[in-house]
């Protein structure tokens, strides 16, 4: 069994009501996309389509087909202000 640490920031942190938690993964080749779907069922208040949630593993953005390793730190990254014209 593998264990990953999941970090929540900004809107996801407020919606999930948690900043960080450990999540156990039972299957050997669980990928990031599957973990994100699982997270969205644990935290149904997260307002985002699982397929569109961006995440980083160990501080690098990764595609959803990236397979998780024991001890990985997964951060769900809400949209940054990119694309807005605030300056």
């Amino acid at each position: 069994m593998k264990e990953v640490t999941v970090l929540y920031f900004a809107s996801y942190r407020e919606q999930a009501g948690v900043m960080a938690e450990k999540i156990n993964i039972t299957s050997d080749n669980t990928n990031l996309g599957e973990l994100i779907k699982h997270i969205c069922t644990i935290h149904p208040k997260i307002v985002a389509e699982p397929d569109k949630i961006v995440a980083a593993i160990n501080e690098e953005y990764q595609e959803h087909n990236h397979v998780l390793k024991n001890g990985d730190t997964v951060a769900l990254i809400p949209p940054v202000s990119g694309g807005s014209h605030d300056y």
Partner: peptide, 27 residues
Amino acid sequence: KQTVPIWKKEHFEGGEVWIGDADGFRP
């Protein structure tokens, strides 16, 4: 604004909101 994980919350009269463009965020 494309890749750095820093988020902005706007506090305005009568509320607050996290700013971010979900469709435009493809790091």
